[in-house]
């Protein structure tokens, strides 16, 4: 019981972080970006390469675990570098594709294009890295027993998993403060609400769009690395998370950061609790059930303002 909650929160943290990026791009760029999952995949793989680079440059060779964690400090600069590179990819795709389609002014064409771009990005990863899973570290981590087995089934969790929960919360709080307190944040909220008014109020909407891609892609990249830390880095990593991401973003209400976080936890918990009920093989279908449920009951989401 408790274990299921903990597992759900770990998965939910990854989903939440990806969904926050998705809900931002959805509300500001005004289309459902099917490429968001691929940014996670690219982030995870770029971190693999960046880690190799950092290890080569520092001459460390092998990563010494950092404190209780399975990975060394080298993963932190590697993750940062991967996030920057993923943002660069997002900007490049926007420049080559979405920017031109925005001018044609048909939102649904952007969705098709993002579907095509997602497939191309996913297969490019497969082409470059192959289909075998990668790991940041081979270090085996011992789970800490937080709750003894006779209390609600007990609870064991690894330091890595705790880090994933904490880091995702930290990033979301940082994003929230940015959106609430800074000019860029207000400009982003203003653009999401009414792009034409934002323009005449003096907002450089093209700049806001670029900032949105950068933030969304960087959050996705970090989420991808975290998924890799507690699991494996696979070409389908992001694709498999795309449906949970959409379910979480819609559940929370498009444009709502805290909604996406809550949605992420709910989808993560639902997935986790579905395993004893329906078996692990149908775990991925849970997000779809959540999605259908919210569309039938409250399509604007928990915190949604407009349909």
């Amino acid at each position: 019981m408790l274990q299921l909650v903990a597992d759900g929160l770990v998965v939910g943290s990854v989903i939440a972080l990806g969904a926050v990026g998705l809900t931002l791009t959805y509300s500001i760029l005004r289309f459902a970006n099917f490429g968001q999952g691929e940014f996670m995949t690219w982030g995870a793989y770029l971190a693999v390469s960046a880690l190799a680079l950092v290890l080569a440059v520092t001459g460390a060779g092998v990563m010494e675990p950092l404190g209780p964690f399975s990975f060394g400090w080298q993963l932190i600069p590697a993750m940062a570098l991967a996030a920057v590179l993923t943002a660069a990819i997002a900007l490049a795709v926007d420049w080559a594709l979405f920017r031109r389609l925005r001018r044609q002014g048909n939102a649904i064409t952007l969705v098709i294009a993002s579907f095509g771009a997602a497939l191309a990005l996913r297969n490019l990863v497969q082409f470059l890295y192959g289909t075998l899973p990668e790991y940041y570290t081979r270090e085996i981590q011992i789970a800490i027993r937080l709750v003894p087995r006779d209390v609600l089934g007990g609870l064991r969790i690894t330091p890595d998993q705790m880090l994933v929960i904490g880091l995702s919360l930290l990033l979301v709080v940082a994003l929230h403060v940015m959106l609430a307190r800074t000019t860029l944040g207000r400009a982003m909220r203003a653009t999401a609400m009414n792009p034409a008014l934002a323009r005449v109020a003096g907002v450089d909407v093209d700049g806001v769009v670029r900032a949105t891609w950068v933030i969304g892609a960087m959050l996705a990249a970090v989420a991808g690395v975290m998924a890799g830390v507690v699991g494996q880095v696979r070409p389908m990593l992001g694709f498999d998370l795309l449906l949970p991401l959409f379910a979480a973003a819609i559940l929370g209400g498009i444009g709502s950061v805290w909604g996406a976080v809550l949605g992420g936890y709910i989808v993560g918990l639902a997935e986790s609790f579905s395993v004893p009920l329906f078996g692990a093989e149908y775990r991925a279908a849970t997000a779809f059930l959540v999605l259908i449920g919210i569309l039938l009951l409250r399509p604007t989401g928990i915190f949604g303002e407009r349909a």
Binding site: A32, F34, A107, L242, L243, F288, L295
Partner: peptide, 17 residues
């Protein structure tokens, strides 16, 4: 009955399922 892109997401989901 919802926004057009919700159909995209839902059909994507049914294909996954």
């Amino acid at each position: 009955r919802l926004r057009e892109d919700y159909l995209a997401i839902t059909t994507f989901g049914i294909a996954v399922v």
